[in-house]
């Protein structure tokens, strides 16, 4: 069972709808026991990092997420859900989950922020997750902030919006994507499908 973690932020219906379309069983939940029992976790989220972390902590979700990831459970962080994996976000100057090393920064070179729309991802790593996905495919983004990983080895996809940023990170059982795969057409679904079907991450 896949559990989409509900921490009272953003629009969870679209992620759930996406999983339904793939025909996989999933559940939206903030229940710690349900999360611990899940085979796979998805942390979605659109919104502010400060509010996101606050909500995670209030529900005790922050600790559980870290524990479950460390135990090797497949984990997908989408948009804010990816950013929260890092050490610190410039958005509200907030400490995040510290699972991945690096910071979350604001776009500074473009006049229009947030970035809204379809942008290309240059694939930097071989991974079974990218099976059936062309290099430089377009994905749907909505973000004002981006991840700046310390460890370049985790960067699996790069996108340019005034500056280059990590649009996909992969580390062990973790997949983080800055775009919304559930809204990124067939290509996005392919990635989601590869993830939920448990493709080995490193190709």
């Amino acid at each position: 069972m896949i559990v989409v973690i509900d921490y009272g932020i953003g629009n969870l219906a679209s992620v759930k709808n996406g999983l339904d379309k793939l025909g996989v069983e999933s559940k939206i939940s903030s229940d710690l026991l349900v999360i611990k029992k899940a085979d796979t976790l998805i942390l979605p989220g659109v919104g502010a990092a400060g509010q996101g972390m606050k909500n995670l902590k209030e529900k005790g979700l922050d600790k559980v997420i870290v524990e479950e990831i460390k135990m090797g459970k497949p984990f997908l962080g989408i948009c804010l859900g990816m950013q929260l994996l890092f050490e610190k976000s410039e958005e509200g100057n907030v400490n995040c989950l510290r699972i991945l090393k690096g910071q979350v920064k604001k776009f500074k070179k473009m006049r229009k922020v947030p970035q809204i729309g379809w942008n290309q991802v240059k694939i930097k790593q071989r991974s079974n997750l990218f099976k059936g996905i062309g290099n430089e495919s377009y994905f749907y983004f909505v973000n004002s902030f981006y991840c700046l990983p310390k460890d370049q080895e985790v960067v699996a996809g790069v996108t340019n919006y005034g500056e280059n940023f990590a649009s996909i990170v992969i580390k062990d059982n973790i997949l983080g994507v800055q775009f919304h795969p559930e809204k990124s057409g067939l290509v996005g679904f392919k990635l989601l499908e590869n993830f939920v079907k448990g493709a080995n991450y490193v190709g």
Partner: peptide, 8 residues
């Protein structure tokens, strides 16, 4: 529509 389309 939400069930049928894959774009925002």
């Amino acid at each position: 529509t939400a069930k049928e389309v894959v774009i925002p």
